[in-house]
């Protein structure tokens, strides 16, 4: 189950502005940016268990929101997902795994932690047709590899 957590509007300005500024310094102009934290919890449990983890463990109810079915309202944004490779130690994932056990009394098979970046090109919508038909996405991939991910230890997908 993938649980996605993000900072509520009104609290997220600094992290979004910082990301836009960082990508700009690396040579990519970005119109808007949103950030999410991703927790992939490997367990065959009822949905209610995951809802409890979302609200009781992973998200701060005042400053954050979360979802079990993806983040809504981001049509036209590129979604960049960054995960540690399976072969790399995931310290956050390991800590969350222990915390999940403390909350539910059940241990998942594993927990992996990742990040999602939603980026909108300035002044235009994402074209249909994928990377081949979209030079902006190709540039985005190159800049992400230089700024947001290290492909020695992480995997990157852009959609």
């Amino acid at each position: 189950m993938l649980i996605e957590i993000w900072t509520r509007d009104g609290y997220s300005g600094n992290e979004e502005a910082g990301l836009i500024d960082r990508l700009s310094r690396a040579g990519l102009e970005v119109g808007a940016a949103k950030l999410s934290r991703l927790y992939n919890i490997d367990a065959a449990w009822p949905r209610g268990h995951f809802k409890r983890l979302l609200s009781g463990l992973l998200a701060d109810p005042i400053t954050e929101k979360g979802s079990l079915s993806g983040r809504p309202g981001l049509d036209g944004f590129y979604r960049v997902e960054v995960w540690l490779k399976r072969s790399a130690t995931d310290v956050v994932g390991e800590s969350v795994r222990e915390a999940v056990h403390d909350v539910l009394g059940l241990a998942p098979r594993g927990v992996r932690f990742g990040r999602a970046y939603y980026l909108a090109a300035p002044g235009r919508r994402k074209p249909a047709g994928g990377a081949a038909a979209d030079p902006y996405q190709a540039r985005l991939r190159a800049v992400v590899a230089r700024t947001l991910a290290n492909e020695i230890v992480q995997t990157v997908t852009i959609a």
Partner: peptide
């Protein structure tokens, strides 16, 4: 982790080499 880490800087980077090339700390 870190087996012959020094030699990986000039090697091709792929899924197989990563766990040996790089060590991730676990402060807890």
């Amino acid at each position: 982790d870190g087996i012959h880490g020094a030699t990986f800087s000039s090697a091709n980077i792929d899924e197989e080499t990563s766990s040996s090339a790089v060590q991730i700390g676990h402060a807890i």
